[in-house]
Design a protein around this nucleic acid. Structure first.
Lengths: 193, 193, 193, 193
DNA sequence: AATGAATGAGGGTTCATTCAT
DNA sequence: GATGAATGAACCCTCATTCAT
């Protein structure tokens, strides 16, 4: 990739980053192309030169975000820390990359996900699931995970908790309960015996 | 309340209902006042006569929705069914009233909640919490709930699950895992012993 | 039609008239909605309230223009003047109504005509053609028209000449040749014998 | 002209040809510089290097087109075919060069013609008129043209017919009437005697 | 009290043109 | 000389809101 290409990529990245930040803070519809342009220090038209339309920009921001998230996920799975610690990190760590993703973006993303199954679906099937299975096997070997539970169900729980923590309001009010939340996750509301 | 008043109230209700329906299906920003007016069979100006501004309308729809939800919640708590069944209903029942609330409305509502603590906060503190405490005490008496867990943490879990189930995509894909989900909730990922 | 309706119709007419004038002078694409609004002394949005879109406005201007033209045509056919005079009027009279229609509008109109055959086609088939036939029969009776010629061909000639005269540049330069043009029309380039 | 110059001329020609083609198909205003650039396989800026502005480009396309047309005209006049045949060719032949010139270009051209009389006017005065006079003299000698008619008037007629035939819609619907159209041209609506 | 009509402000998008390499 | 990148201005259109009846 020559200098031309590299600068182009960098600018594209700037725009994506600006858009992601704004989308996460204000939602998609409230953010105008002109705002993104201002934040990314380019003209509106430049954005159109790179992304064709607002719709396409959103889509690309989506991809960009997903890839960032996956990388984060990967790091935790292969980290050199005990299994329960990994789970905790999934649930409670404010990801540097993801920070606080606005629900609306999420919503939008999920529709794309449903519609265009293509990219995301394959990412999930081929990469996320195996990674997660790997993680759970580790948990089962160490007696932290009931082998009778389906991986899907557990993945669902982790994802739900993780998503939920992304909401600022929730995160703040839940922090004091970290211990209890974790306990419920491991031992349920019936509690350890 | 005389006939005049009553008719006025009815019209207001119509508008709220129309707005809620549209908000839940398309989100707040995508729905224009003109659409709400059409659906409620009134002129746009009439809406302004009752609600001052779109912002205020949204707020009122919010209140309207919260009260409906609370009523639903109340019914379950006092229903004549076993404790675990009540929990299941919270989590899995597609509420008639709420159906599938669009995430965006929820988002908006939560901001209001944070901002205007007033109404909602007091509703929560004075009505929902006591109701929930009542429910959990029932659970503790019957050995379904670990007495060491804080009620807040459990409420958080229930609410989270319940919210999550409102998302159409999630609901569909999760139904087959009902049993596992419930088990995790009661016994955690470590499982029953 | 009550006062409400009447005022509404009047405003619509104003807009149509403003649009027609501008279209005829500058062509369709060069004229922006905002210019039409200014000329008609209303806001842009008002135009949208009446016409839905620029495309629709153009279409309605078209209909408006056609009807005006037809009325003009009708007047000449039934005027109390000799046959050759009628022909001359068709060809040379700068119609008050039509004035100088910009070629582009004409172009656009013709495409609509082709596409939506509906309105125009039926107007032509049911009204214009009979009217013209009536006129030609008059001409044939008086020995001004060769009975072997098809009405279509003559209509074509008249229309072509009439259209052509609408072009300002042409009109100016052709006026001195009026006599010759008329002669060619009646006797051809071979000339009277 | 060295190789450098020649290549430059060739590129210019490419651009003119691309522009003419697009203008004729879609009209002037609908065609963007970027489209012309794409069709001519050059960058937009290159077009500006050669033509200064879109306006200038249009003007040059115009000149280019006129010269092509003149060449075509010349060929017919000196062709070895009878006089009536030449006339027919003028009127009915879809010129290879001109094909179907979009009305809008024509319109634009005519304005230039009026404004800048310079080039076109002199082309007309010095070349087209003499050529046409030559043709008509031939017609008069053979008894096909009334010597009392002014050449201007006849030229007007021929040009009008010829222009009109360029319109696709007209051309199609007129073809069946070729014979009548020709007869009217030669003998008028009064007919041969 | 209710409505049809009207509008200012703003949004996404395109285009002719210029800048910088 | 040629190009990819960038832009200001303008366009069509929508929306929350107000005016006038």
């Amino acid at each position: 990739m020559d200098g031309f290409q590299r600068r182009r990529e960098q600018k594209k990245r700037n725009i994506l980053e600006a858009a992601l930040t704004l989308f996460m803070e204000y939602g998609i519809q409230k953010v105008s192309i002109s705002e993104i342009a201002k934040k990314a220090n380019v003209s509106q038209v430049t954005i159109y030169n790179y992304f064709e339309s607002k719709h396409q920009l959103i889509h690309d921001v989506f991809i960009y975000y997903i890839e960032k998230s996956y990388t984060h996920f990967e790091k935790i799975v292969f980290a050199d820390i005990p299994f329960p610690e990994k789970i905790k990190q999934f649930i409670f760590s404010k990801k540097e990359t993801a920070k606080q993703i606005h629900e609306e973006l999420y919503q939008h993303l999920m529709k794309e996900y449903a519609q265009e199954g293509n990219y995301i679906e394959s990412l999930y099937a081929q990469k996320v699931i195996p990674l997660f299975t790997h993680l759970l096997n580790e948990g089962k070997e160490q007696g932290f995970v009931d082998p009778n539970l389906s991986n899907e169900a557990i993945l669902f729980y982790v994802k739900m908790l993780s998503d939920y923590m992304q909401k600022e309001e929730v995160y703040q009010s839940i922090l004091p309960m970290t211990e209890d939340i974790t306990n419920i996750f491991f031992y349920g509301i019936v509690g350890k015996r």
